[in-house]
């Protein structure tokens, strides 16, 4: 009988600690024979971030929410982090890993700045910072102790006079493209970003890029669409603009939304007919 009791055909996703499955990934039992791993799971998380190249540089967007599972826990978190004069990060995933990583990078940049008082060498380019991050994230995944983030690095390379936009995540996966989006944004916003980008620049990207205003309006649209469909998003977000003039991070703003259509919906929620 006791054998029967301990057998469960369908593993329960609930336990006393997390009775309502609010944590992002309900913990699952693991073999006790496996070697001890430092694995973890994200706890306080930020949802998708977006990035796009425009004619004078790069723009990044991230909302101000840090969720604890399905709980909208912190509603005034800045997920855009400037580094130096012409690089900015937009970070999704675990917020404590994000803060740890920025602390590490800020210290590195600070150390470099103090050296540069006596030794003249060029400041870190966006590519330098991106390579550092890629190596950090790949090294941590290779220790099976990842930093649980997906990051967009946006920048303006002052030497080459060109914009920089690239992605790195918890696996150490890296790539670059003129428009980028992480997480659910890769499914919902990325098609909109690509469509608008290619409408002007063409599929080969050789045509003119979006203007700053067009890019910002496009990001506004994408953040609005994400707010409508991403249950872990907040209608309060910021946009970082990285250009030759440096990094500018906007005040928090929100989209105009229209929920009148919800009244007419049938088949969901409490209404009976």
């Amino acid at each position: 009988m006791n054998q029967l009791h301990s057998f469960q055909a369908v593993p329960s996703t609930r336990n006393a600690f997390d009775a309502y499955s609010t944590l992002p990934e309900p913990p699952r039992p693991q073999s006790t024979h496996a070697p001890r791993a430092h694995t973890q799971q994200p706890i306080v998380t930020g949802t998708s971030v977006l990035g796009i190249k425009y004619e004078g540089g790069v723009m990044l967007a991230a909302d101000n929410l840090a969720s604890y599972g399905s709980l909208a826990r912190f509603k005034d978190i800045q997920r855009l982090h400037p580094l130096g004069d012409n690089t900015c990060l937009a970070v999704a995933g675990d917020m404590s890993d994000f803060q740890y990583m920025t602390k590490l990078l800020d210290a590195t940049l600070r150390a470099d700045r103090s050296v540069s008082l006596t030794d003249t060498h060029p400041p870190f380019s966006p590519q330098n910072i991106y390579t550092y991050l890629s190596n950090l994230y790949y090294a941590r995944r290779s220790k099976v102790n990842p930093l649980w983030n997906a990051i967009l690095v946006g920048g303006w390379d002052k030497e080459k006079k060109e914009s920089f936009l690239a992605y790195v995540d918890l696996l150490g996966t890296t790539y670059s493209a003129p428009t980028l989006a992480t997480g659910i944004g890769a499914h919902i916003a990325q098609p909109l970003l690509r469509e608008a980008y290619e409408a002007k620049a063409g599929v080969d990207g050789k045509g003119p890029l979006l203007t700053g205003q067009e890019a910002e309006e496009l990001l506004d649209t994408c953040m609005k669409v994400l707010f409508y469909r991403d249950a872990r998003s907040l209608n309060k977000y910021q946009i970082a603009t990285i250009s030759n003039d440096g990094v500018k991070i906007s005040d928090s703003k929100s989209s105009e939304t229209e929920w009148g259509f919800a009244e007419g919906l049938r088949g969901y929620g409490p209404q009976t007919q």
Binding site: P27, R28, Q30, A37, P146
Partner: peptide, 12 residues
């Protein structure tokens, strides 16, 4: 049960 539980991270 609670002690055993961990999220499996797939490094690949």
């Amino acid at each position: 049960m609670a002690a055993d539980k961990q999220h499996a991270f797939n490094p690949y």
